[in-house]
């Protein structure tokens, strides 16, 4: 199964490495600014709220809501899930939004609704890479 995974995988950079290492341990690591308290994603060493470099990592709850989504039917040669699948933007309860996939629900707009509660589920797609996915809470 693992050797068959062909979809794109991240190549972590120094600013994002703690996130992807956390994913391997099944910990959703976000950053928070010690100056303005803003929690943010994607990872970077400056706060996008105030440009402070005094930022820290913390582990998020993994709970959130489905902010928006699309149901992908065509247009990709390799996909992370069989088509059709739900491409999702989840709003975490700590505030930041992230792109992910919604699983555990039919890929059909009749079954997927903006603002529905969702919860994190890790997918160890290769021995090196783990991706965050979400399912209805």
């Amino acid at each position: 199964m693992a050797e068959e995974y062909k979809a794109p995988l991240p190549n972590p950079t120094p600013d994002s490495k703690p996130f992807w290492e956390g994913a391997r341990r099944h910990e959703l690591r976000l950053q928070r600014c010690r100056t303005c308290s803003e929690a943010y994603f994607y990872p970077r060493n400056v706060c996008p709220g105030c440009l402070s470099t005094d930022v820290e990592w913390f582990t998020a709850s993994g709970r959130g809501t489905l902010h928006t989504f699309s149901i992908v039917h065509r247009g990709l040669k390799v996909t992370p899930l069989p088509m059709p699948y739900v491409l999702a933007v989840v709003e975490l309860e700590e505030g930041p939004r992230m792109m992910t996939n919604l699983v555990g629900v039919p890929a059909d707009p009749e079954h997927v609704r903006c603002d529905m509660p969702v919860v994190l589920e890790w997918a160890d797609v290769t021995p090196e890479a783990t991706l965050p996915r979400f399912r209805p809470a």
Binding site: A7, P8, L9, P10, N11, P12, T13, S16, W20, F41, Y42, S70, V72, R74, G75, L76, T79, P80, L81, Y85, L87, A88, M98, M99, T100, N101, A129, L131
Partner: peptide, 14 residues
Amino acid sequence: GQFEMPFGIGGPPT
């Protein structure tokens, strides 16, 4: 490449 492409973003329509 790190935070969108792994989730199956296709061309601009998605």
